[in-house]
Design a protein around this nucleic acid. Structure first.
Lengths: 132, 132
DNA sequence: CTATGTGTACCATGTTATACGGTACATATT
DNA sequence: AATATGTACCGTATAACATGGTACACATAG
């Protein structure tokens, strides 16, 4: 199971599920058509309430990443070709700036940060755990 | 006043204050020794409760960005030279990955994202609003 | 048809974070 | 003494989060 929940994190439990499915889809660990665990099944495995898992799935469907079929289950949706809008780009830029600020206060200057980002991008399509 | 609060944002009000002071310090719009508005003064200007502003200032002091002196006021602290720890680097990498995932779902591939990040870094030390 | 599994919609409860309003205290400056 | 500062309380209110339980609509397998 590639999903793991940290109950002591400040990140809401349903949000942790959303984040991890998002990552799995983005990195193609999950392919379109793949079936996700059922709401109740996943709730038991992660020791969560079924309502919490359902909330995560509903958020993911709202984003268009998954499709749910009554009585059948939940599946990874087809990836729709999409071009980032100017608003999207502005939002992404803002997020980058926020990260630059945080990195600066941790002692990482923008140029060094950019090198680090380059390395992360280079490792983008690798399996999961880089080293042992 | 460079501080502005959006009451309809999902970001907590005190967090908005923290973020903006963090940015002002990181980008040297505020210099060490500069005095920040008093808790009550800022509370009135931003239409916040004094407790909310105080919470923001206490968070900023906890991070070492500002210093508070009883009866005197709140001031931007000296920047302490610091090297990012391995834990810090791991955290930053994780944040970068999260951003890459979000960008991907908006239609921005890692390589394009990296170019965008490069442009943001290039504009890092500019005043405030790039163009008109 | 029945039984089971699916997503979903409720309802109620409890916890926590956020934000407010008010008051009061310790300290520093004037 | 008067004022301004940060801070520490108290209480209240709202919203998000998470749980537990029940029930319904739909699909599939027997």
């Amino acid at each position: 199971m590639w999903l793991h929940i940290d109950p002591r994190s400040e990140v809401p439990l349903y949000q942790q599920v959303v984040d991890q499915v998002r990552e799995a889809v983005a990195r193609r660990w999950l392919q379109p058509g793949d079936r996700l665990p059922s709401v109740r099944e996943l709730a038991i495995k992660l020791a969560l309430n079924h309502n919490t898992v359902a909330k995560a799935y509903q958020e993911l469907e709202r984003e268009g990443l998954i499709e749910t079929l009554r009585g059948r289950g939940t599946f990874v949706a087809e990836r729709k070709p999409r071009t980032a809008s100017p608003e999207d780009l502005a939002w992404i830029e803002q997020q980058i700036r926020q990260l630059l600020i945080a990195a600066h206060h941790l002692g990482l200057e923008p140029e060094t940060w950019l090198e680090l980002a380059g390395r992360v991008v280079a490792r983008w399509r690798e399996p999961e755990g880089g080293s042992s």
